[in-house]
Write a protein that binds this DNA or RNA. Structure first.
Lengths: 195, 195
DNA sequence: ACTATAAACTAATCACATTAGTAACAAGGG
DNA sequence: CCCTTGTTACTAATGTGATTAGTTTATAGT
C-alpha cells in the first residue's frame, strides 16, 4: 500500500550526503535538501525526524559504508598486510566522503544504538587484523586505540586541509602506517622479553 | 576616551570560550553569549563582527594559547624528551579546552592571516624539537605530519569520547608517543644506511 | 469506482542572526 | 561647570531556518 512514491527516506539521506560532501556538513539544512529535491521543507518530515534525525541517518549511513569498506579490505589479510590494507580503505573512504567523514567518527550518544553497533563492528575487524601479533588483551586495546588515532589524525587533518606543504600526501601516509607497524613489532618484542 | 566600560571584546570572547568548553562549540550562539553577559544580542556587535567574527576570535584565542603551551613545553628540551613534553602539553590543552580544541585545529582559510601565522609558529616549534634527529627536509616534513597526526588523532578521539573501553587513557597515550618516537629512530637508521 | 493511507502542501510559530536607527553615558576641551 | 564627541547599549524590524498543526491529493488495494 505504498502511495505516491517519488521520494523516500533513502533519497533524502543520499541527497543530504551529497550536499555534505560538496559543501560541508554544516551546510546541510532542511532548506537546502528540500530545494535539491524540489519539495517544500515540511514534506521532509514525512521521511526523516527533522534535522536531528536527518543528521543521525547521515552519520549512520557513513559509518555503515566505512565498516563495509574496512571489512572488504580485511578479507583474507592479517598482520602487516592487513594493517596496510585497512589503513588504505579508511583513507579512501574519507576521500570519497569528506563532508561525512568529519561527523562519522564523532562518538555516538549512549542511546544511538545502531551507531554503536556499527562502530563495534569496525573495532571487531581491527581486532581480527591485529590478532596475529599475539598481544594480550591490554596490549591489544592500546594497539587498537593507537591504530584509530593514527588513521583518524592523518585523515582528519588531510581532509580538513591542514597539510599545506607541497609534499606528497600518499608518501606521508605510507610512512605513518609503516611507523605504526614498526611500533607493533617493537611491542611484540617487548612482550616476548617479559614472558 | 573609553566610555561606559563594563564589557569589552576580550570578555565577550572569554565568555564564549567558557560556553564552548562547557556545552560544545555548536552551542555557542549570540543569544547564549548575550544572556551570559546580561546584555541584549545586538549589543554584541559593538565588540565582535557577528557570529562569524566571534568564532574567528575564539579559534584565534585557542590557537594562541595552544602555541604558548607548546612553546613553554619545548623550552630547553629537544629530541625524545622534547617530543614527549610537547605531546603532553598538546593533550593538556585539549583537556583544559575541549570545546575549543575541536575547532582550533580546523585549517584556516587563506585570508585568515592571524590564524595562519600562529599555526606556523606551532609548526616552527615542532621543527625545532625534531631537529636533533638530523632529518633532511623531506624526512622532516613527513615526520612533522606524522607527529601532528598522532597527537590530533588521539586527542580528538579522546575528547570527543570515542574511547569507551575501561582502560587507562594516559597509558594509551604514553604508548602511542613512545611508538612514534620509535618510528623516528627507525627513520634515522634508514637514512644513515642510505647515506 | 471506493476507500484508506501516505505524501505533499499551506499556514502559523519560534529561535536566532543581522541591520538600522535611537538613547544614554563618560571623558576632555572650553 | 557645561557641552561636544564618541562609544555602548538599546528597541524595532527583517530574514532565514526549523518545527508543528491541519489540510489536500494522489495512489494502491479492495
Amino acid at each position: 500500500m505504498p502511495p505516491r512514491k517519488s521520494i523516500d527516506a533513502q533519497k533524502v539521506v543520499q541527497t543530504a550526503v551529497a550536499l555534505a560532501d560538496a559543501n560541508g556538513f554544516e551546510a546541510v539544512t532542511l532548506a537546502s535538501v528540500a530545494e535539491a529535491l524540489g519539495i517544500r521543507i515540511p514534506s521532509l518530515y514525512n521521511h526523516v525526524a527533522g534535522l536531528p534525525g536527518l543528521r543521525y541517518e547521515m552519520r549512520l549511513w557513513g559509518l555503515r559504508l566505512l565498516a563495509e569498506h574496512i571489512r572488504r579490505a580485511a578479507v583474507g589479510k592479517s598482520g602487516d598486510e592487513g594493517v596496510g590494507s585497512v589503513a588504505s580503505a579508511y583513507r579512501a573512504f574519507a576521500h570519497a566522503h569528506p563532508g561525512i567523514y568529519a561527523v562519522t567518527l564523532r562518538a555516538p550518544d549512549p542511546d544511538e544504538h545502531d551507531l554503536i553497533a556499527v562502530g563495534q563492528e569496525i573495532i571487531d575487524v581491527l581486532f581480527a587484523i591485529l590478532r596475529p601479533y599475539g598481544f594480550d588483551d591490554e596490549d591489544m586495546l592500546h594497539a587498537i586505540r593507537a591504530f584509530r588515532s593514527v588513521l583518524h589524525g592523518f585523515v582528519d587533518l588531510e581532509t580538513s586541509g591542514a597539510f599545506k606543504m607541497a609534499l606528497d600526501l600518499d608518501e606521508s601516509f605510507r610512512r605513518l602506517v609503516e611507523g605504526f607497524i614498526g611500533g607493533l613489532h617493537a611491542r611484540q618484542q617487548a612482550a616476548a622479553v617479559t614472558r
